[in-house]
Design a protein around this nucleic acid. Structure first.
Lengths: 317, 317
DNA sequence: TCACAAATGCTCATTTTGAGCATAAAGGGA
DNA sequence: TCCCTTTATGCTCAAAATGAGCATTTGTGA
């Protein structure tokens, strides 16, 4: 049995908690679309994927990754074509293994040309912290309804409607923040995303509703967002994004940034309290704009015993 | 930038609900250790991994996969060496993309030499349905304590103790069924698993505490079990393992087989009821050994709208 | 000195769990 | 035929967790 060779790349979705919104590390590429940091996997040099990933991130971006987990392996034909500075896909297929990395907000900006970009510049429909994003009613929902109506048969129309309803919460359905990837894929397959037109090399009528990224990188980021939004509920991963000490309000702000909607403050604290994940340091942070807040710290030990638990998400409004 | 080529294999962990316990599809290999079904990924033939996977499973095992999801991509050096019928790892590194597939219990046994094997023959310590498995107190816990004591420094000893406590629930800690993979990895790294001795080519004093598998296949199965045990709680994946109609007792039995411990029957039903996932057909199943049970069916539509929900797991005892 | 803005503290009605008791209905054997 | 055993189902009750919102503190800045 012989196995045809393919080239393997490693993609990192490095995330941090910004002041206003969660950030993702991207590499600007001049007039081209920005890309995720990317490095080849060299089986001769790297005993494991993760070692390889950490190595080239520290080489290229000059900073050390902390928390890292494998996301997904992407290998569909056609997805890698637009990355012009990589070998053409005609000979060797390139598959890429996506990783999610979380770094404390204090992480210095990498000097190698990387930049922190707000998640929601790439996914404006995902940010409900200040209510329903205008882009939904203004552009996306009408376009989705058009796409539904364009279906060729009644059956397909019904299938499209079901899909749009459940992912985008149309017709009174609930919005499920974890379905970020499903929404991206729906927008892609219905042609509402710049990458879709680009990949099919045709101009679509859709106004650029958000920023695009090179290759299938925006899909990889959507995968990372979905994963993080889910995981935060059953593993204490948020703390990987926090500095050593923080106020509870800041913690809540970071969680709200991730899930994309506001939380009920008192209930958030009550639930957090019960987990025992956090303990007061006695020190206070002044100049909060009101009463000073106590600084807390994450108790890593708690993770060890006991059940898998993350942070409760007591939705507000 | 050039990317060194590697060979990509696809591994399928195909699972079904057996009469007594969940089953996994394995390929017996005579005097060698049994293996998971494995097929090469050929970028020239397969547009996507999943298409490739479905194709060779239907070729080799003569049956069609239903539900399929990507699990993880395994690429550590050394892991593939023992699969003698594959090219040596010296030249080309083989990485394998693991997939989890779920098939209804009615699925015919594949004729191509595949066999359904009970999960718990490979992971006897994971089956708490009839109480704490004897192998834990009899063999695993003493061996773990020996391994803890063997550590060279106090710090390492403490680290080993913490790790063993939280994964195996030592010293009164809770048993978390989702940490199946962590437990396998601990047993592996502490040398209590046949594969560990094999991979280091040394004979360990450990009695064969369970069946082993080729290469890192048992690790892949552990990954699948952990994934399924987690996912069952927030997505209605159990129904992928059920036939068209089933009794509630059978459904509970399947869930118990997966999570590995008994559930409280009445509360299981109450919670199931609330999800609306299931509806009675009016038909009854006789000869259950007692009062006949109603046959139910899964309402696929419910999945569409509403929140992500799986099946409640009201632990009993 | 007095509002204001945050940070914290508490209460209360609802829901959701966790446990168990009670009743119903077939099949087997006395 | 009539219990008795066995499995299916129904229901109740206390405890815990959630969802909402009012009330109190305590620096800051006008």
């Amino acid at each position: 049995m012989s196995i045809p060779p393919v080239a393997v790349g490693l993609n990192a979705v490095v995330m941090a908690a910004g002041l206003e919104a969660p950030q993702v590390l991207v590499v600007p590429r001049g007039s081209n679309e920005p890309a995720l940091p990317f490095g080849p996997f060299d089986p001769a040099r790297h005993r494991t994927f993760e070692i390889g990933l950490r190595e080239w991130v520290s080489e290229q971006a000059h900073f050390q990754l902390g928390y890292v987990e494998q996301l997904y392996t992407f290998g569909d034909r056609g997805r890698e074509a637009p990355l012009a500075d990589l070998p053409s896909s005609d000979e060797a297929r390139i598959i890429s293994i996506g990783y999610l990395a979380l770094t404390p907000e204090a992480a210095d900006l990498p000097s190698g040309g990387g930049e922190w970009h707000n998640w929601y510049h790439y996914f404006p429909w995902e940010d409900w912290r200040a209510g329903k994003p205008a882009i939904l009613e203004g552009q996306i929902e009408p376009a989705l309804r058009r796409w539904i109506d364009e279906a060729e048969t009644d059956g397909r129309r019904a299938a499209r409607r079901d899909r749009a309803r459940s992912t985008f919460g149309l017709d009174g359905r609930a919005w499920n923040e974890e379905r970020c990837l499903d929404r991206y894929e729906l927008l892609y397959s219905s042609g509402l995303i710049a990458e879709a037109a680009r990949d099919r090399k045709e101009a679509q009528g859709m106004p650029p509703v958000s920023r695009s990224m090179a290759s299938d990188h925006r899909r990889i980021v959507a995968t990372a967002i979905s994963r993080l939004r889910g995981k935060i509920k059953y593993r204490p991963v948020v703390f990987e994004l926090m500095p050593d000490t923080f106020t509870l309000s800041r913690l809540q702000q970071v969680v709200e940034g991730i899930v994309g909607f506001p939380l009920h403050k008192q209930n958030f604290r009550r639930a957090l309290d019960r987990t025992g994940f956090v303990e007061g340091t006695g020190r206070m942070l002044a100049r909060t704009g009101g009463r000073p807040a106590e600084l807390f710290r994450y108790r890593r030990e708690v993770l060890r015993d006991g059940q898998a638990t993350g942070i409760a998400i007591p939705r507000s409004r």
